[in-house]
Design a protein around this nucleic acid. Structure first.
Length: 758
DNA sequence: TGTAGGCATCCATACCTGTCGCT
DNA sequence: AGCGACAGGTATGGATGCCT
């Protein structure tokens, strides 16, 4: 029974049966969950001077797991290259390729370091998280899932959006008598779960019972997506270990599989997507503390949390158990809501980059860009180079103007649209167009680029055209519709990948690292913005500030229109007025300003207000002063500061507002100099808490003698009566506001007097 | 398992200088 | 006078987190 099968690709896996077989976990058009199976042979290439010799040698290598080999024409950095393509009967290519290279005297090996499942997706042009059709015959079902054998080519189907996925969000509580729970000794005490249909379940009490209850729920509901917060690095490995100790396994994958540790700490669930929203929170710059609560409020979700700090959990569990359980359920609900808000973006990113939806979140930006480029390379017959280790060499970046300090009225901000991608396309900047006699010569650099369209510019063109298409289509659908939401998420994902391509080229770890290309891009960028500044001056526009691809000018619609026209015609680039300020305040510092937008909102850039490593009281004080400066006057601004100082003096500031958070960026032993958050982290570790690189450490400065790092204590241990109020006044509140006030002519002395005035 | 460079800011630390007490 | 201890000032660089 052969017929066309349409399906949406959920996840991909490879198994070795007689040879490697790809399993595509999918959702059929009728909503059934199914597996498309196809045997395939991952390949690698051998290159060298004597391809005939290599071939003869391969002929005599029947004892190796090779299915076939052939002489093929490919390209390397755009230049034609002949190579021997070897098809393997194993999915462990690197060892095989290296042994054959040595045995047969080949010089180069290509693509042996690309995982079998990635090769399958790219060669067969299958994009995860999207619809395809293929000729297939039904074969024996496995564990209730229909299985199809695919034959022939896969066609991509133009269809917006995902099928109706079954989603399960969960949260789990772990209880330790002391410090951070350890899976060897400390139990899970509750698991809360919510389905996309709104069903809620909570398991608690006997640990074996609650874990079995959760496993039963997963088996029964059979979700396509399991979503949580901090599941990859923490919860899933923890729960799996608890199960093992209790004598059973955490079989929450399809076909009863346990979670498997996959690349970079990702936990893989067979046949399901395991999505950890913490990964997404981590890469969202607006989110500083990386908590579920913060993420929910950033997304503007109406979810209630009666938060219980992890440091208070043990005590709360003893005293107010029902409140703890309710909080756990609130978290599960919150996780589901966050998932619903971000899932379109995740699936778009997955489809564009070609990485399965659960892996795309754990992959860093560079690997997302690279996976996208690898897909294009395979289509174009361009060999994918191995990951090298280029020596780190820095180069010049964007230009930043010295701002005109002070308060300015009616300022327009002109932005170049996608400046770097457009420069790379305009001057055909790419690793395969770099050439000494190229027609495009980078300003003040010995780099030049050929005429014939390069790999990177072609990739960018594809991304930007696709983005335009997504935007146009989005506009054709009504506001609030599923299609519009999905298409908008798609255009955002496309923009992210396009904008990261410049940085990717300058990344020494990139397969297609090309410092010359990155360096030339920023050089043309500097030339572009400088010539725009010249022109603006020539037109009589008053320039206030500029950074890389933006220009702040006193608003003057007529002259600005003329400047934008010139940029389009003479530079062949596009710029637009991105925003307007009724008032904007600059200090002497670059990259820091605050303004009153034309829509009445206050906007802060670079100032302490937006930084996560200042206490809330300092940030509030600065924002209040800024608001007063922009909306009222200087006296009011000073008055706001006075009020804050007074509140601190009188002990009216809640201790939470005094917490200073800093990220521990490496192990505590690796630090060269003592710092408050490091000594606090050390103390916490001694007390049994796990504090690892990447964790945020919150501390408060207490009265006492010695260095600052000797006066810092973990925030949850701080005694409010012993807080070093003077530190908060003199080192936290005053400096940030003083910088703003001095920009409008109020000397720091004035604030000093405020402090003395008791 | 790291997109890039440019930048402000705080604080620890090393180093320098001058003063003081002691021999 | 010569020496070391110490206080105070300054230059430097580690560390963090922002901007485009």
């Amino acid at each position: 029974m052969i017929g066309m099968l349409s399906f949406w690709v959920l996840d991909i896996a490879t198994e070795v049966e007689d040879g490697p077989v790809a399993w595509i976990w999918s959702i059929g058009e009728d909503g059934s969950r199914l597996i498309v199976k196809e045997p395939f042979r991952p390949v690698f290439y051998l290159t060298g001077g004597d391809l005939e010799g290599i071939s003869t040698c391969l002929e005599a290598s029947k004892d190796f797991p090779i299915s076939s080999f052939s002489l093929v024409e490919r390209r390397l950095s755009g230049r034609p290259l002949r190579a021997v393509m070897v098809s393997a009967m194993t999915d462990e290519l690197e060892g095989l390729a290296e042994r054959l290279r040595r045995k047969c005297g080949a010089e180069g090996v290509f693509e042996a370091d690309i995982r079998a499942s990635s090769q399958f997706l790219m060669r067969r042009r299958i994009r995860p998280s999207s619809w395809h059709a293929v000729e297939a015959s039904e074969s024996e079902a496995i564990g209730g899932y229909k299985v199809y054998r695919a034959s022939g080519d896969y066609q991509r189907l133009e269809r917006v959006g995902t099928p109706d996925l079954k989603v399960l969000a969960f949260d789990s509580l772990l209880l330790a008598s002391r410090g951070t729970p350890k899976p060897e000794v400390d139990p899970a005490i509750a698991i809360s779960a919510v389905t996309d249909r709104g069903e809620e379940r909570q398991f608690s009490g006997d640990e074996a019972g609650l874990l079995r209850g959760f496993i039963g729920l997963v088996e029964g509901y059979d979700p396509d997506v399991v979503v949580g917060f901090n599941t990859n690095r923490r919860l899933l490995p923890y729960l799996a270990e608890r199960c093992r100790r209790l004598g059973f396994s955490l079989s929450i994958g399809r076909l009863g599989a346990e979670p498997r540790t996959s690349v970079y700490g990702h936990q893989s669930l067979q046949g399901r997507l395991n999505i950890d929203l913490y990964d997404l929170a981590e890469e969202t710059p607006e989110i500083k503390l990386e908590t579920l609560e913060e993420y929910s409020s950033y997304l503007g979700l109406k979810v209630e949390y009666d938060t219980i700090d992890e440091y208070d959990l043990a005590e709360a569990w003893g005293k107010e158990r029902s409140r703890v359980l309710e909080y756990s359920m609130q978290r599960a609900r919150g996780i589901m809501e966050v998932y619903k808000a971000v899932s379109d973006y995740i699936f778009s990113l997955s489809e564009i980059t070609g990485l399965p939806a659960d892996h795309v979140l754990t992959a860093a930006t560079g690997f997302r860009v690279e996976n996208y480029l690898m897909g294009l390379a395979m289509e174009a017959g361009e060999l994918v180079p191995p990951r090298g280790e280029a020596a780190y060499m820095t180069y010049a970046g964007g230009v930043v103007m010295e701002p005109r300090a002070g308060l300015h009225e009616d300022v327009a901000v002109i932005d170049f649209k996608s400046m770097y991608p457009n420069i790379m396309m305009k001057y055909n900047i790419s690793f395969d167009t770099l050439s000494v006699d190229g027609v495009h010569r980078a300003p003040n650099l010995p780099h030049a680029f050929k005429e014939e369209v390069g790999f990177i510019p072609r990739a960018l063109k594809g991304l930007l055209e696709e983005r335009e298409r997504a935007r146009r289509l989005a506009d054709m659908h009504p506001e609030g519709s599923v299609e519009r939401r999905v298409l908008e998420a798609r255009q955002r994902a496309l923009k992210v990948i396009a904008n990261a391509t410049y940085g990717y080229m300058g990344w020494t770890g990139a397969r297609w690292y090309c410092r010359e290309a990155a360096e030339a891009t920023s050089a043309w960028g500097r030339e572009t913005i400088r010539s725009a500044m010249e022109r603006a001056k020539g037109l009589g526009l008053e320039i206030i500030y500029g950074d890389t691809d933006s220009l702040f000018v006193r608003d003057d619609p007529e002259r600005i229109r003329s400047l934008l026209g010139w940029i389009s015609e003479a530079l062949g680039m596009e710029a637009r007025v991105d925003r307007r300020y009724r008032k904007v305040l600059f200090t002497e510092a670059k990259k820091r300003y605050g303004g009153l937008r034309d829509d009445g909102r206050i906007e802060t850039v670079g100032l302490e207000v937006v930084r996560g490593d200042w206490s809330a009281i300092a940030k509030e004080a600065q924002l209040a002063a800024l608001e007063a400066i922009l909306k009222e006057g200087r006296e009011e601004a000073v008055e706001r500061v006075r009020e804050t100082i007074e509140a601190l003096r009188e002990g009216r500031v809640p201790i939470k507002k005094l917490i200073i958070w800093k990220k521990l960026t490496k192990g505590v032993e690796e630090y060269e100099v003592a710092a408050p958050h490091v000594t606090v982290a050390k103390r916490m570790i001694e007390a049994g808490w796990s504090v690892k690189p990447g964790d945020m450490v919150g501390f408060i400065i207490m009265r006492g003698r010695g260095r600052l790092y000797e006066k810092a204590v973990p925030y949850f241990e701080a005694d409010p009566s012993r807080v070093d109020v003077d530190y908060y006044i003199e080192k936290q509140v005053i400096p940030p506001v003083a910088r703003l006030l001095s920009a409008i002519g109020i000397p720091e002395r004035t604030l000093g007097e405020l402090v003395l005035k008791k």
